[in-house]
């Protein structure tokens, strides 16, 4: 696996709180827009197709049946 899932942050509590606080004044639609922007910014920063596909698979785990999760791989 290329996705690094070991602890990497110097101050995880601070970053977690910063993420949570970012949603404080957002309604649902704004939160969704924020999620989408953040995902795209980080996606480009990661810049590695394999890592991103692994992350997509792990994030999908348990949310969709396995055979449907496979659809994601069918869309290059």
């Amino acid at each position: 696996m290329k996705l690094d899932t070991t602890p990497r942050l110097a101050d995880p509590d601070a970053i977690f709180t910063a993420l949570a606080h970012a949603y404080c004044h957002l309604d649902d639609a704004q939160a969704r827009a924020f999620d989408a922007r953040l995902i795209l910014l980080l996606t480009n920063h990661v810049g590695d197709d394999d890592v991103l596909r692994e992350a997509i698979a792990i994030a999908s785990d348990g949310l969709v049946p396995r055979d449907r999760a496979g659809d994601l791989d069918a869309v290059p």
Partner: peptide, 28 residues
């Protein structure tokens, strides 16, 4: 087609986020 007609609300949000960020960042 997926981009022009997103198939879920979050796909639409991703599409709109890409358009929003495209004004400022070439990656988008």
């Amino acid at each position: 087609a997926e981009f022009i007609a997103p198939r879920s609300p979050m796909a639409r949000a991703l599409r709109d986020a890409a358009l929003h960020l495209a004004g400022r960042f070439s990656f988008a």
